[in-house]
Amino acid sequence: MRESTGDKITRIGISVLLLLISISCLAPVINILSISFSGKQAVESGKVLLWPIDVTLQSYSALFEGTRVLASLWNGVVMTVGGVIISMVFTICAAYPLSKGYFYGRRTFTLMLLFTMVFTGGLIPTYLVVKSLGLIDSYWSIWMPGAVSTYNMLIMRSYFEGIEPEIEEAARIDGCKEMTLLFRIILPLSMPVIATLVLFYGVGYWNNFMNVLIYINSTEKYTITVLIQQMIASQSLLTESLANDTTALALVPEGIKSAGIIVLILPMVLIYPFLQKYFVKGVMLGSVKG
């Protein structure tokens, strides 16, 4: 089939547009990457754009030797992996029953969950609850209160509801009980939504900043996000504050900050390709044949 001229123009137009958008997203990342590998003077004179100048690993060696970046990177991984496992288990446990029409009290439970999307306890009351549960200064204070994101749970519920009832019937005829049905039929069919939510939760935990700051007291448990945020924010502190806090004021050089940002985003960038295949594979698994 030959493409008409109009189609061709549209296709080229869309490609150019998408290319421009991806360049505008990539350029800042490349710029940061180049800065992290460049010499100090070149960075401070603003000469580094998309290619490193006076290539050096100084920024990285300063970052790894002079800060707790490795320890906090590990903390970030522990918090994220732990958090994703907990969140996924609880989200599935909530979404599956709520997707079933025969589940007693389905509407009430859904409404109760929806309520939390609109109203929250507020920072201090939530803190008091977490404190009285004895969770302060452990990652449970991050994991427990936010274990299930209602929004993500609703996405999963809708996906479960979208699975053809015929598949379920067929499984039941073959003698499947509820648990087997969930683990052997529903979940394998739901890899796209699972992959998506793992990514949502993962990014959420990885970038979690405020909660770590507030609930975690020991700096040895700080995650990399908090560490890097402090490095970056110290600059604005310098210019905004007349508070005279200059003797010890952290003048973190641009290069080290950039190296920190790269270390911060790298794990998420590396994980994405592995999850991506489920998006494609999963979509085909879900189709009903014949």
Binding site: R68, L70, E220, L227, Q230, V252
Partner: peptide
């Protein structure tokens, strides 16, 4: 004590 994220891992933490 202020924590500025600038302590080396080999030194411990700002608390210790």
């Amino acid at each position: 004590v202020y924590d500025r994220g600038l302590i080396a891992a080999s030194e411990g933490t700002m608390e210790k």
